[in-house]
Design a protein around this nucleic acid. Structure first.
Length: 800
RNA sequence: GCCGCUGUGGCGAAAUCGGCAGACGCAAAGGACUUAAAAUCCUUCGGAGGAAACUCCGUACCGGUUCAAGUCCGGUCAGCGGCACCA
């Protein structure tokens, strides 16, 4: 078969006849299948794109054939650093290179033969899109969920921009691998922490991979503990602790060097040392500062606070092992029951007081497990759990603390000092402060002529025609915010735009979106677990609370595809030279073959090393199907043999049943295996008079997996296109009932024989049939039967 | 250090609720067809022993539960991923 012309023929047919489009008139149940959109990079589609989009498209087609009104859109996440870095290197403007890449990639995506509804196409760097990204920013601002603050931020020394906590990996930039340092800057933040509890709770009702749920849970990092107040003169130091039961073992209190109380309480004689320590701490990069291997450091402030229960004087230190950004920025030091405090106390000579004993009596300090309170006055004898409750209760009554929940999650920093992104729609006025751009003035257009060579400043700051403006409130000269939004802001709401992507008046029509969303099946890489997938959930909840949306979660069901590795088992990369170009395989075999091989050769969620050999076998398999179809057509209507009807009917219906289940679970490799089994049976039953009928069902079962091929075969068999207007075959369970079944015979749990028994027999019947069989009695050679276990349709175990 | 996932033939992988381990395919070997090759078709294909019927062993390792364990439980090792001075 000439794959190239056949595939083109059907691509054109689908496009012309609207087979790929969502039918807004239909009253069939909607099904929104979404694959994570991609960044339009310069090179061709790589195998990773194919592996994501090909099998997921087969799933979408399967759903369509099951009668759903499927919506499967495609677009691009086209703002971002690569285009800008490329521009810096080559001088090609990001807008030009991006538009060119989008055109190329769109063409290539069409070559997959996906059922993408191109009428919904959009990309995030177009003003028609980022207008609404800016609108989203303004809504968050209006509702107090976007705010500006000066704070230590992660600064990538190579990208010359701030990046989010989620984008710092091992103290390095997730994108370029350069060192990340802390810088104090005024930045915009989204208040994702306001939703910490709901983001955590709702995870339970999502059909997501367990791994991803766990990662989000850990990332949110809920920690249930308490706050304890240590008065210090007029002021008070509040610490967060999960071990309030160890309160009587406190021998010092530590503040983070950045803690606001530090300057106030430091005594004159300690001033010099404290200032020096603060300076050193601010210079250290996160990687140095957060290294667990590093020896503890710290200095005394000269001040003492008061223990809330004993009234004892407790020395106050500063140390960088106490983080300003978590809890209250202050911790109580309990050396006997915390390994860090123990280390610190040893070094600086703090006393180490045991207040917990292991229930078993056997322990040694530092003892960090739960146990029984000792040396804690009236609290002695309580367990850790009881002690926490009693001590926090005691403190709460006196206004010195109480139960407190903390989250590890921080607010999302969204300002980027880069050019290629959506401008932040804020105007800074000397009189009125930060003023949101009126919605009628959106979009704030990204100017074309800008010098974006990175020098640590936002490129837009140097563009006067952009920066200089007037205050929308008082009319005085003012300047625009020079930063752009993190591209994760663009991608945090794109799934809401697709169903209404051409709407010029609103980001989306809420009535429509509430019908089309949530996404029923979301498919994409696992690397977005704590970024895109978390941000999108937050934005959905925020828009819901503003009244735009009526659902709580954007993605009901999520699947991660695995990673296709190079033939050497390593991650594909140009530098390693192990990349595999899908184009040569499409040239040689066609896109159906590549797609089907990707579905058959790997466990979808696992992925694995690429292997050239397997792909040929799929090509041979399609040839094999074509031959049996031709045989079926040729023999149709002629009197053929009726003998193997039962076998063929069974094989067809078994295949339908299993493929239906497998497709539903993204178990594509077994689905293809079941289809191969059916074809093997068809070759055995070549002369059966049901062959044509069986072939017709086979082709429909195959259609989602090899769409062009199936469409061609369907037409060749004399049916009117498109096969995607046909129903996916439904299993006739009655054809799966067999008269006889082969079961295994075990003696003392060891496999000894096989035997064919009638399926009409009950357990007793099977038992007597087996024990009555001469071969079995011979096997038992007169041994006394103690017990017989019968598993219907599977095996009989005889215990002697 | 903590959390999670994974570990099955020469290879990619299957195995519903604990019930015949290795489906389906690749590679390999032998055979048929062919002048020959390709394509196609048939056979073998976890290991050891045996002429064969068949027997024993086998799902990273050690132990347990069970009539029965790749599957459940406890421990160990290895690989991958995530978090990590989070109080």
């Amino acid at each position: 078969m000439d794959y190239k012309s056949v595939e083109q023929k059907w691509k054109d047919f689908w496009e012309k006849n609207g087979i790929n489009r969502f039918d807004s008139e239909s009253d069939a149940k909607k099904y929104y299948v979404l694959e994570m959109f991609s960044y339009p990079s310069g090179s061709n589609l790589h195998l990773g794109h194919w592996y994501n989009y090909g099998p997921a498209d087969s799933f979408a087609r399967f759903k369509r054939m099951q009668g759903y009104n499927v919506f499967q859109p495609m677009g691009f996440d086209s703002f971002g650093l690569p285009a800008e870095n490329y521009a810096i290197k080559t001088g090609v403007h990001p807008e030009d290179s991006t538009n060119k890449n989008i055109a190329t990639m769109e063409k290539q995506l069409r070559s997959i033969g996906g059922m993408f509804d191109w009428s919904a196409f959009m990309y995030t760097s177009s003003p028609e899109y980022y207008k609404w990204t800016q609108w989203l920013f303004l809504q968050l601002y209006k509702h107090g969920l976007a705010y500006q603050k000066q704070s230590p931020v992660n600064w990538c020394t190579s990208c010359n921009t701030v990046i989010a906590n989620e984008q710092v990996v091992d103290g390095k930039c997730e994108r370029c691998g350069a060192d990340v340092v802390r810088k104090n800057m005024t930045q915009w933040f989204f208040k994702i922490t306001e939703y910490a509890e709901e983001l955590l709770e709702c995870l339970d009702k999502l059909d997501w991979p367990e791994k991803t749920l766990t990662m989000q849970r850990n990332w949110i990092g809920k920690s249930e503990g308490g706050e304890v107040v240590f008065p210090i003169g007029e002021d008070k130091i509040t610490v967060f602790t999960t071990r309030a039961d160890t309160l009587m073992g406190v021998s010092y209190v530590v503040l983070a060097p950045e803690h606001p109380l530090v300057d106030k309480i430091t005594t004159p004689d300690c001033k010099k040392a404290v200032e020096e320590y603060k300076l050193a701490a601010s210079k250290a990069s996160d990687i140095d500062r957060l290294s667990t291997a590093k020896e503890k450091t710290g200095v005394f402030t000269g001040a003492y606070c008061t223990h809330p229960i004993s009234g004892e004087n407790i020395p106050v230190w500063i140390a960088d092992y106490c983080l300003a950004t978590y809890g209250t920025g202050a911790v109580m030091g309990v050396p006997a029951h915390d390994t860090r405090d123990f280390e610190f106390a040893k070094k600086f000579g703090h006393k180490i007081t045991r207040v917990i004993k292991a229930a078993s009596g056997e322990d040694e300090l530092p003892y960090v497990e739960h146990g029984i309170l000792v040396g804690s006055g009236s609290f002695d004898g309580l367990t850790t759990a009881e002690g926490k409750k009693a001590i926090l209760g005691f403190l709460a009554e006196r206004g010195l603390g109480g139960i407190k929940i903390n989250y590890r999650l921080r607010d999302w920093s969204v300002s980027r000092q880069r050019y290629w992104g959506a401008p932040i729609p804020i105007i800074h006025c000397d009189h009125c402060g930060a003023v949101p751009v009126p919605e009628k003035d959106l979009p704030v257009r990204l100017p074309y002529d800008v010098n974006f060579t990175p020098d640590g400043q936002s490129p837009l700051r140097k563009c006067d025609s952009f920066i200089d403006t007037v205050c929308p409130i008082c009319g005085a000269p003012a300047h625009r915010d020079p930063d752009t939004l993190d591209t994760f802001v663009c991608s945090s709401w794109y799934y809401l735009r697709y169903p209404d992507s051409k709407n010029g008046d609103q980001p989306f029509d809420p009535a429509l979106i509430n019908k089309m969303l949530p996404v029923d099946k979301y498919v994409g890489g696992a690397e977005h677990a704590c970024m895109h997938l978390l941000y999108s959930r937050f934005i959905t909840k925020a828009l819901r609370d503003m009244g735009y949306l009526k659902f709580d979660e954007p993605f009901t069901s999520l699947v991660h595809q695995g990673l296709i590795l190079g033939t050497d088992g390593e991650k594909m990369s140009k530098s390693k030279g192990n990349t595999v170009n899908p184009d040569e395989f499409i040239q040689a075999y066609g896109s159906d073959v590549l797609r089907m091989y990707l579905m058959f050769g790997f466990s979808y969620a696992e992925g694995g090393p690429w292997n050239d050999d397997g792909i040929k076998s799929i090509s041979k398999f399609l040839d094999r199907v074509e031959r049996i179809v031709d045989t079926a057509i040729a023999s149709r209507g002629k009197s053929t043999d009726a003998s193997s009807r039962r076998e063929l009917e069974y094989a067809v219906n078994y295949c339908i049943k299993r493929v239906t289940e497998d497709m539903e679970h993204f178990s594509f490799n077994t689905a293809v295996a079941r289809i191969m089994e059916l074809v093997n049976t068809m070759y055995k039953c070549e002369s059966c008079d049901l062959l044509f009928d069986a072939c017709e069902k086979l082709i429909r079962v195959m259609a989602p997996i090899a769409p062009h091929f199936a469409e061609e075969m369907h037409e060749r068999m004399g049916f009117a296109p498109s096969i995607f207007n046909e129903q996916f075959p439904i299993c006739d369970e009655s054809k799966l009932v067999k008269d006889e079944v082969e079961i295994a015979i075990q003696v003392n749990s060891k496999m000894r024989a096989k035997m064919v028994v009638s399926t009409s027999l009950d357990d007793e019947g099977i038992k007597s049939a087996v024990l009555g069989d001469s071969k079995i009695t011979e096997l038992l050679s007169g041994a006394a039967v103690k017990k017989v276990i019968v598993i219907k349709g599977r095996l009989v175990n005889i215990i002697v």
